[in-house]
């Protein structure tokens, strides 16, 4: 398969399942003992890990390993059976998705969730106003809803950074899948999240589009100091974006460490790549 990891990588990190943040800073995200079962089937079974401020972590694993469920628990779309999710030291408890978003958890979706009738710029404008709580009805009623110079500058900067400038005034419904993923990314970033959850961003993209997305993700993480939690099957994308990789299998974290170290671990190769 793609890019065989160097055999020289140290083994220590791979066997460790204590997935605490590697950097010394305070964790921006702390998942503790998370469990969730659907019907009788256990999807997530006592998962704990953390993300340091500004750290980029890839979450990989075979189908049914529970990655998507972990993701949904963090963003609040699913309520875990047991365990806690803390963001910036605060337990998120039963907080709904939209309030988590306002705290600074941005996300993109595996199946794009864009607003087809809005233009690219409007996506960013809406996100920006929601972020700054400037959505009161009275502003509309007294006709003070046109974008201000300030807002145009802010959204314009993000558009340029992501490379969406040329299509800024097109309705998103008319754009291709790769561009829609960039729109989602820009929409999430305009609110300056402290943590970005990216759910299979490469799914349905070809190699060129994936590479483009990887570079944008990496650049954003660097320039904005965002923490990124990335779920993807595309090994190359994870390698390009993640500082650290967590491997899940059967609802548990089975390995954590640098990309090379994790990919070299026999348990991971068996579970994920199918070769020992």
């Amino acid at each position: 398969m793609a890019g065989a990891p160097s055999p020289a990588a140290p083994k220590s990190g791979a066997s460790s399942v204590d997935a605490a943040p590697s950097a010394g800073g305070p964790p921006i995200l702390a998942v503790h003992d998370l469990s969730k079962s659907f019907g009788g089937a256990v999807a997530v079974d006592g998962v704990s890990f953390g993300l340091a401020e500004g750290e980029s972590v890839g979450l990989v694993g075979p189908n049914g390993a529970g990655k998507t469920t972990v993701f949904a628990c963090i963003s609040g779309e699913i309520r875990p059976d047991t365990g806690t999710v803390a963001f910036a030291g605060r337990d998120l408890g039963r907080m709904p998705t939209w309030r988590r978003a306002r705290l600074g958890i941005g996300r993109t979706y595996q199946r794009v969730e864009v607003f087809p009738e809005l233009t690219v710029r409007d996506h960013l404008l809406v996100a920006d106003r929601v972020h700054r709580r400037r959505t009161a009805l009275w502003r509309d009623l007294v006709n003070r809803s046109a974008p201000t110079a300030d807002e145009l500058a802010r959204t314009g900067a993000v558009l340029e950074m992501v490379g969406l400038g040329p299509v800024a005034d097109r309705p998103v419904g008319a754009l291709g899948l790769g561009t829609c993923r960039l729109v989602e990314l820009a929409r999430a970033v305009v609110g300056r999240p402290r943590l970005l959850l990216a759910d299979e961003p490469s799914s349905g993209l070809d190699e060129l589009e994936t590479a483009e997305l990887a570079s944008v993700l990496r650049a954003l993480q660097r320039s904005e100091g965002m923490a990124v939690l990335l779920v993807d099957h595309d090994v190359a994308l994870v390698e390009a974006v993640a500082d650290r990789v967590l491997v899940m299998d059967l609802g548990r974290v089975v390995a954590s460490g640098t990309f090379e170290a994790v990919m070299a671990a026999p348990a991971v190769r068996r579970a994920y790549l199918g070769t020992a």
Binding site: L164, G165, A211, A214, S215, A219, A240
Partner: peptide, 14 residues
């Protein structure tokens, strides 16, 4: 796209 920050060369850099 011209003026979009040259997406083409970014993968290489990255």
């Amino acid at each position: 796209r011209p003026g979009s920050g040259g997406l083409d060369d970014e993968p290489g850099r990255d």
